[in-house]
Simulated scan of single mutants.
Amino acid sequence: MLASSCSMMGAWGTATEDGTPLLAFRALDWNTDGPFKDFPQVTVYHPTPGSGNGHAFMNVGWVGWIGSITGMSSMDMAICEIGVSFPDDTFGQESRLGIPFTYILRDILQFDVTIDDSISRIVNADRTCDLILGVGDGKLNEFRSVQYSHSVARFFDDKNLLPLNETWHPRIPDTVYHGMDWLCPGYSVVLANQIKEHHGGINADI
């Protein structure tokens, strides 16, 4: 199992500049001494229409990488993820038996049309390790983060975002975000402060 550490955010409505439609980001917070930085690759797939192989999507990864941890599709769907090294008891159990999460995320990009499709896919999947997933739907202007493990799949928007901590992970209107991990005050508070500072003016440049 590989659970990569990162940060993510989805912002829309009152959080964005002039009510810009959904903006989402995923930062790959990995060790820069490793080999990954030397072999980046953006791959765009164009399945033949009517072939049953889904629709066009872009996969951001590395040479030889066929799973997905970051990407978007022609259906205005986007995915991201964060590995969880510091969970709490609400995550339940992990398992090494199941569908690798990178293939579930790729299937979301390749086959799903709406965020409801993705929610159904995640709920019904044979899940494995502790993660936080992110799924955005630009058509519906919606973003969900997912508390994900073998035994748990919980979906969060800006109204029910967890973990809830008013000091380092407060709920912010029209925003879903996670900094580096589930229980990670040092990173989460920095991200929260930046979101609050720019709330109402978040754009692609910021």
Rank of each mutant, 00 (worst) to 15 (best):
T32W: 04
P35N: 11
P35V: 13
F36H: 14
K37H: 01
D38K: 05
F39Q: 01
F39P: 01
F39T: 06
Q41S: 09
V42H: 08
V42L: 06
T43V: 14
Y45I: 03
T48W: 13
P49Y: 02
P49G: 10
S51E: 07
G54A: 13
A56T: 00
F57Q: 07
G61P: 09
W62F: 11
W65E: 05
I66L: 14
S68V: 04
I69F: 14
G71M: 01
G71D: 02
S73M: 04
M77V: 11
M77P: 01
M77D: 06
M77Q: 05
C80Q: 08
E81D: 04
E81T: 07
I82N: 03
V84I: 06
F86I: 03
P87T: 11
D88A: 01
D88T: 04
T90G: 00
T90D: 14
F91A: 12
Q93F: 00
Q93K: 11
E94A: 04
L97S: 02
G98W: 03
I99L: 04
F101Y: 11
Y103H: 06
Y103I: 15
L105N: 08
L105P: 07
R106V: 01
R106A: 03
R106D: 03
D107S: 07
Q110L: 14
F111M: 07
D112S: 06
V113N: 13
V113W: 12
D117C: 15
S118R: 04
S120Y: 00
R121L: 02
N124F: 15
D126G: 09
D126R: 08
T128C: 03
T128I: 03
C129W: 01
C129E: 13
C129I: 02
D130P: 04
L131Q: 04
L133A: 12
